[in-house]
Structures are given as C-alpha cells and as structure tokens.
Nucleic acid binder design. Structure first.
Lengths: 115, 115
DNA sequence: TTGACATATATCCATATGGAGATATGTTCG
DNA sequence: CGAACATATCTCCATATGGATATATGTCAA
C-alpha cells in the first residue's frame, strides 16, 4: 500500500516538483496547455494529468477558448498550506521570544552578581 | 517509474499527512519516539521512518537522552515552503490590485457618461 | 555480563502514481 | 461531412514508498 494516497489535498498537489513547475509557468498568466507544454519539459499527456490534479484541489481553473483550454492560477486555494506554514511560524517566533527572555534573564543575573 | 522521487525536499516531506501529524505533535515540544507513537496512531517503525525523512530535510532535530531519542521541531527549514507560498500570495494580491484598478476605471467611466 | 527497554533498520508486500505512447473527444474550418 | 488541430483519457509498465513484522542496535540497570 503506498499509504494514504488521497491525492486530493493541496499538500500532495504541491508536493510534486512538476506540478510546481506548471504553477510557476501559470504565474505569468493564463496559458493554453500547449503553451505550458512548451515551457516545461513534459509531454502533453503529463501536463494534462498534472493540470487535472491541480484542478481537483482548486489550484487552477480552466476555461475553454475554441479548441484550446486556458488554465490560470486560483491561488486562493493555497489557504490551507498558508495556514499550516503560519502555524509553524508562530512556533518559530515563540522560540525566538523564549530565547530573548532567556538572554534577558542572563543579563539580569549578571547585573545582580555584579552588585 | 513513480516519477521524480527525490523525497529529500521539504515539499515532499510535508506532503504526507502522517508526517504532518508527527510535526503537529512536536509543536507541543520535544518528545521521545515512544511518546509520539502514543499520540499518533502509527506503529513505532513507521514513526521512526517518518522521523528519518523529516530529519533528512531538516524539519526535525534529534538528540539522545539515555536510551531514548528526543525529537524537536526545526521549523526554520520550512523556509522554502514559506517562500513558495509567499510568491503565490503576491500573485493573489496583484490580482486584487488589478480588480481594484478595474473597479476604479468603471467608476470613472460612470462619472464621465453621467456628465 | 545479562536482561529489559527504546529505537532504528531490514524485509516483504501492496499500491498509488508517474512516464510513455496510443487513441478518444471535441472544436474549427473548408 | 471530413481534415487538421488541441486536449483529455486510457493502457501498460516501472518504481517509489508506505504498512506490517521481525530483528538489529544501543543503552541502562542489576
């Protein structure tokens, strides 16, 4: 069992380097599949499949334009990832605060023994 | 080929829901492997292996304490993930700015035709 | 040293998943 | 309708990777 797959979450979607490459291309704006294929070094079927995964988790939106499909970012759906990172940034900051407190404490102790 | 594996990147490490569970446990502070096993519902070998992956990408640090190994967060190494999310947040903000500009433009046009 | 305990590692297997290629679907145009 | 084109989907296969279990490693205590 390759474990809990449930690929349908943002973390998994972004965990793949090729999908991040596609997202990077889309940072420059809406693009057709063919254009994406030209920018990243992947086959068209690969790009289409990755786009599907990205679409399933809401990171990209698609609209038809004649015989093409234009994809664009929908980065609002990065929210869970953003929230998650923010949680750990609080952990970092708390730790820094504690270090600061500790340094201040050392400082005070130094002053005391000096007296 | 299950694709570019190179598990040794933060995105992949965090892409697994079980590893995120372990990180969440460590948010409460340094813990021994046994304590982590008790908190998450995974076997000890599983926890150890996930801890190894997390250690390889620098997200956790380990120190020996008698016959135990105490693990703690090293969230500084979330930096790449943080930077990545920030990049896309700029994309969101730019888009919002553009919408604002557009709304202002509509406003001006409305005023013009009204005159 | 021996035994108990904590953790890491090795083995085996199941499966999710990506790559490659062929083909289906859908769209435009003549 | 048929041809050309853009994209999606399907099939086959390789493999990375997680789960489970057994076992090795390392540490403490007596």
């Amino acid at each position: 069992m390759a474990r809990a797959s449930t690929t349908s979450d943002v973390f998994n979607a972004v965990g793949d380097v090729h999908r991040r490459a596609i997202l990077d291309v889309l940072l420059t704006g809406e693009k057709a599949v063919g254009a994406i294929v030209r920018d990243v070094s992947m086959s068209q079927p690969q790009v289409s499949r990755h786009l599907r995964v990205l679409g399933e988790v809401g990171l990209v939106r698609c609209r038809a334009d004649g015989r093409r499909r234009l994809y664009r970012l929908a980065p609002e759906h990065l929210q869970p990832l953003h929230d998650w990172v923010a949680k750990y940034e609080r952990a970092i900051n708390d730790r820094l605060d504690r270090i600061e407190d500790y340094l201040e404490e050392l400082q005070r102790q130094g002053d005391d023994s000096g007296t």
